[in-house]
Amino acid sequence: MRTHGRAIFVLAVVLLLGSCSLFTETEESSAPRPEKARLVVGVGNVVETAPLRLGVSEGLFRRGGLEVELAELDEDDDPVSLLTEQEVDVVFASDVALFRAAAEGTEISLQGEAYVAGTGSMALVTLPGTAYTDPGKLPAPRIAVPTRDGLGSLTSRSALKAAGVDPTKITFQVVPFDGMVDALRSGQVDAAWMVEPYLTTAQKEHGARVLADCAHGATESFPMSSYATTEQFSSANPRTLTLFRELLAKAQQKGADSGTVRRSLPRLTDIDDVTASVVSLGSYPQAVHAERLQRVADLMHGSGLLSERLDVASLVPKGELP
């Protein structure tokens, strides 16, 4: 009787474990699969996209059921054009570029925030020996920016306006980041707007000095960039993008540890260990916050970059709104 009872008990345990396994397998098999198993994501600035790059390199997305291929964007690429021409599925871009495109009629769908500025992560810089040592000293400064009517001109106007400069008197000259030091040295411009890692490189190699922190005052903790797709792609691939957002949020969690970001930069790009150890870092949001992003759109509207106020919440997938 005792042996018979033990056999019944063992059988019951086996059946119970089997039923649990069967239930788990059924649950997994019934989960809807993403419409696309592979996404091509256009990426730019390595500091701002570090968590995504780290997540891809460490297999986080692949283990989560989504293959992500990173397409490197050149500085002169138009990320919105690459998106609308379907050369990439999702693209990294400055919030200014995305909101300007949305205001002009491009149906944009925000899939995640990439980066929010931290102290010293974007700034107006000059070279040693210049007489331009106070942001309010020149009434009509010439400023180098990487793109016309972009994040650089928006935040430079804000910083210089706070210093007493009339924004309408500022002249912006489009200069690629790698040409800004030469533009300063030749006297082509009075100051240059830089972000990391170019900012730290200019300080380390050329003795560049910060004239004004562009992540201060009205632009403190300012949203800089996001990941987006077209509304058409979003509507056709809702499960794929829901999974992408979930996995992106996990990748962005890595950005909460600045040490992890700094250690990853040399192997993700050609940034050397010394530069990586001292770059000024912002933060990496794990979800889209429409209210925070609205600050960008409202500043664009107030400075004349947008003719009408843009409702950023209309660009966020409905399920992602708080």
Rank of each mutant, 00 (worst) to 15 (best):
A192M: 08
R148D: 14
Q294W: 09
E48D: 04
G44C: 01
G55C: 07
S57Y: 01
R292W: 11
G112P: 08
T269A: 15
S235P: 00
D134H: 13
L248G: 08
G150I: 06
A144H: 09
P285A: 05
A251V: 03
G118P: 11
L247C: 07
S57M: 10
N237I: 01
A313T: 13
A97R: 15
L321S: 11
H4L: 15
A31I: 14
A101W: 05
R292N: 07
I143H: 05
D134I: 00
V145H: 08
L211R: 09
A12R: 09
K254C: 00
Q286S: 14
S186Q: 12
V47K: 04
S21D: 13
D273E: 15
A117D: 14
T106D: 12
V316L: 11
S81K: 14
A163C: 05
T229G: 04
S94I: 00
P285N: 07
K250E: 15
R245E: 12
A144G: 08
A101T: 04
A218F: 00
L160E: 08
G207F: 04
P317T: 10
S121M: 05
L73T: 02
E87M: 10
G18C: 10
S109C: 13
R38C: 13
D311C: 02
G105A: 06
S121F: 05
D89V: 01
V40I: 13
G255E: 06
P128D: 12
L310G: 06
D273S: 15
H206L: 02
D298K: 10
E35T: 02
I108K: 08
G207I: 01
A102D: 07
D178S: 12
R38Y: 00
